[in-house]
Design a protein around this nucleic acid. Structure first.
Lengths: 260, 260
DNA sequence: AATCGTTACATTGTCGACATTCTTCAGGTC
DNA sequence: GACCTGAAGAATGTCGACAATGTAACGATT
């Protein structure tokens, strides 16, 4: 939706919360603005902790403050924005004390997802795993190029979201989308948030193999171990061999596309 | 908040979504309205599928349409309201095709919660289980009186929410709150939604025992079995011995308390 | 009799303006 | 020098009014 987000890959616009009932309805203005705001946060245009001035953003989107404020309340409910009375909106900053809870919540959702996938009949399971392997390939390719830390992060999160998407459960997908954007916020909040573990590829390969074996329990434990390591790294408890990738936070300021 | 909800029990106003960051801040008007709306849905004042006329509700709450619309967007994000462009707001109706997904989502959250509780050190674990046993006692007492189906449902949902609350994870609590209100909506949507299984007490006793044994895996499986049976009952697949309790849906119309 | 098109109504979507609150900065005091 | 106090400024919170849309009733037509 903004230029930093869609960089050509066909399957971009990864995790985006969609309405629970997915009928054929023209999206409301509030929907469109909410998507725009989420993309701005996910893409780093709105940095964690920064304040969101209503008049400014509204004029950039070509709408008035009313619809913008309504959309903002959606993100407040998601925990992506915080609204202090009188002081307006800020992008939430995921502090170190929140990382543990965040990944526990992700484990709750994604663990349920992999258990559910593993319990499918083999044919459907293979179909979902095949598309997950595409995402894994994208991650591998991003790791090979190895210059753009955010691209690696995108591919990682896309893979995790894809697992939840395979369940077809709109509620789980909505939760996962929120948590994954918060993961991105956490990565943007910490200086070393984009440091990438070298074994990230192995872990996900293991995960998919266990899934195709139908061993949901093992896959869930792999996920738990992966998250535990990630949390430890973010909290600086461990100091293992890293593969640091420079991640330039493009300093572009606000730039929304006006809504049609 | 409205008379159908607080019937004297001290620990009422059960599951209510709170802001993720729980600092000392006077709640915003939008917060207050959102709580009021959730209570109205949870308490049956706003019935599933009914339309919510903005001007009417706003005047009853003593606010203008602006803040009400902002609050409504919060519930839209939660999946408690749906907003069709031009046609306004309706309370969501959880159809039969949604029941499966709803309980799968609840299993994801609550299973993670019980696993987490079971993994605590014994002292803290016992403390949480003690408060859960209070909720279990409330459920038992509601079942003994046995006249008010909704009170039984309240006690059941309070117990389930209490388990998630014990984790202290605000994200999980927020998700659980949303899902539990949707469970209530599902119960209000189906004619026999308030039919209560006779073994509901045994199941929860088993659950707490397994928890105090620190066996998160077993507790999680108990939960899964419980939910599977509930889904089967709601979808009318099974016809086991029931203990039907008459649940009168009090036909009171809108009645909000004006905000102070 | 049932269906389609038209019209009138009610409700929502959006906007601009005003009242209120918070933030910031200067000045003074301890 | 650090802290508290107060006032100016800027942003938010709220409201009322208008425009746009969807809905329902009614009559004409097949």
């Amino acid at each position: 939706m903004n230029q930093t987000q869609d960089r050509g890959s066909a399957r971009r616009n990864g995790p985006v919360t969609r309405p629970l009932v997915n009928t054929v309805r023209r999206p409301s203005t509030v929907d469109l603005i909410a998507v725009e705001l989420r993309n701005a946060i996910y893409g780093g245009t709105l940095m964690p902790g920064s304040s969101v001035r209503e008049a400014e953003v509204a004029s950039q989107l070509g709408v008035s403050r009313g619809p913008l404020r309504e959309s903002a309340q959606r993100l407040v409910q998601e925990g992506l924005l915080v609204a202090r009375p009188g002081a307006g909106l800020r992008v939430v900053a995921v502090g170190a004390d929140q990382v543990e809870d965040l990944y526990q919540a992700r484990l709750a959702i994604e663990s349920a997802a992999v258990r559910q996938i593993a319990a499918l009949d083999p044919e459907e399971r293979r179909r979902h795993i095949a598309s997950a392997e595409d995402l894994l390939a994208a991650l591998a390719s991003a790791l090979e190029d190895g210059t753009d830390a955010r691209r690696i992060g995108d591919a990682d999160l896309d893979l995790h979201y894809g697992l939840v998407e395979a369940t077809g459960n709109l509620r789980l997908m909505s939760f996962a989308s929120t948590l994954i954007i918060q993961t991105r916020i956490a990565a943007l909040s910490h200086a070393d948030g984009y440091v990438v573990r070298t074994d990230i590829l192995d872990i996900h390969r293991t995960l998919l193999r266990q899934l195709s074996d139908g061993d949901g329990q093992a896959a869930s434990e792999t996920l738990a171990g992966h998250f535990r390591q990630t949390v430890d790294r973010l909290l600086g408890r461990l100091h293992e061999p890293f593969s640091t990738v420079s991640g330039e936070a493009d300093g572009s300021h606000f730039s929304f596309n006006r809504l049609p």
